[in-house]
Design a protein around this nucleic acid. Structure first.
Lengths: 244, 244
DNA sequence: CGCATTGTTGACAAAGTTCAATTTGCGTGG
DNA sequence: CCACGCAAATTGAACTTTGTCAACAATGCG
């Protein structure tokens, strides 16, 4: 993964703050420092508060975006208009990949912040120009798109072939990797039952019952809006060791 | 969509038959005739019989492929190893897009023929070379990949938020577009209950019951391995007109 | 301290799957 | 050309999983 050069104080982008030291993104991997500077210079940096919609499914894909700090969720809408969680967007994740198509396309999903965040935004046309100048960007873009594909396929498999219990376990384990904070007691997650239920596509009631069950078994501890995974391995075993 | 030049007799590719006249593929759209010749010349043409596996999920993506004639299905495997239908592959559809990544990647899905078919195969490295020579190919590739994303998202929405009846209706309507033969009586589909059930992710029993119901209502006619859609619009109305 | 948000619990209902028992259709070989 | 045999399709009934709903509890913020 690309790491920003931490040696020298990073140059301030034309219209925004620099990227935090140590920031990594799959999209910028393998670029030279000067290429990274050029790419960042073409972006607009923006702070966004919690629960802000960064892109709206169906609207023309006008920007390529990159989450710098914070947390967002990537949703698609059902035919009835309910939102359907697809994945977390964490710092370093790009979204709005539809903007890089030659023909203007609509966004495939809605992205909404779950915490105060900051993003880099490239306007469609200037992104096209940048991607022509830096071939490595195109390669990275394709890799990122492929990663979306693979994740989407996993979600699909999970939703259609796993039980509610397994989906919850999977979501907890994945979330632990992506948005968890490791501590002495275990891995801490800032998730309400409601958000977790939504992410695992389970009713809040099922989520509550299952979490209580795992709490009883000592696998995790709960408090309001927080989950502490004490034994993530026991959750993993619910997934893999399913067939005896 | 790209159409092969039908004016002159198509030049025979190095190691296979030419593409049939009128053949169209999203992947080759916008290429000049000479570019198309060059691209086809780099491919191996292959006949494959029914139920042949063209690529295996998890194996290294060694080839980019293009279905020329016939029909195939694009499956992914569940964690238990069952196959999970994702989409049809019809003539002109490319698959094995993972081969175009810079780093070698595994195939994301299994592709299996449902009829006697023929495919064009590009070995990974020569595909890379071709795609460097013809920038338009890269653009098309990205568009094709985006189309996969969009379809996958649709499947996901369908699987998680629609009833068995709706999924069957949707699958019938989609299949009618993609693999149906329009006739005076309606649109004919060569599908067994089993294949349809698999594609809609429904048990064969549910499929049988629902088809019988629609048969009773005059929406379709069935015979062994065949379905004749008489009133596809009434199926569509089950999807959209669901909310009153 | 009061109130809104978040979480819990039990009873019940709905949607589909599973299973077993048959029936139907169709190609084939005698 | 007929009967056989297999694959495809059907049907009813029990069963499972999970969602829905209503009522309630507890947590923590202002």
């Amino acid at each position: 993964m690309a790491v920003m050069d931490e040696g020298r104080p990073p140059r301030r982008a034309a219209s925004g703050a620099p990227v935090p030291p140590g920031f990594r993104s799959r999209l910028l991997e393998g670029l030279t420092p000067s290429q990274i500077r050029a790419v960042l210079a073409g972006a607009r940096r923006q702070r966004v508060s919690r629960n802000e919609v960064l892109q709206h499914e169906g609207e023309p894909a006008s920007h390529l975006s990159l989450l710098v700090t914070g947390l967002a969720a990537f949703y698609t809408a059902t035919f009835e208009g309910d939102k359907l969680f697809l994945r977390w967007i964490t710092p370093g994740d790009a979204f709005g990949l539809a903007a890089l198509q030659n023909q203007p396309q609509p966004y495939l999903a809605t992205v909404q912040t779950l915490q105060e965040s900051s993003v880099l935004l490239w306007e469609r046309m200037s992104a096209h120009a940048l991607f022509s100048q830096v071939p490595r960007l195109r390669e990275n873009l394709y890799a990122v798109a492929s990663d979306y594909m693979a994740r989407l396929a996993h979600v699909l498999v999970s939703r259609t072939s796993q039980t509610a219990e397994q989906r919850l376990a999977r979501m907890l384990v994945e979330s632990a990797h992506q948005i968890g904070r490791a501590g002495r007691e275990g891995i801490a997650l800032d998730l309400t039952n409601e958000l977790l239920a939504e992410a695992a596509d389970v009713s809040v009631f099922t989520a509550s019952r299952q979490l209580s069950e795992w709490h009883r078994q000592g696998i995790l501890a709960k408090s309001r809006g927080k989950i502490l995974l004490r034994a993530p391995k026991r959750l993993v075993s619910l997934l893999a060791g399913h067939r005896p």
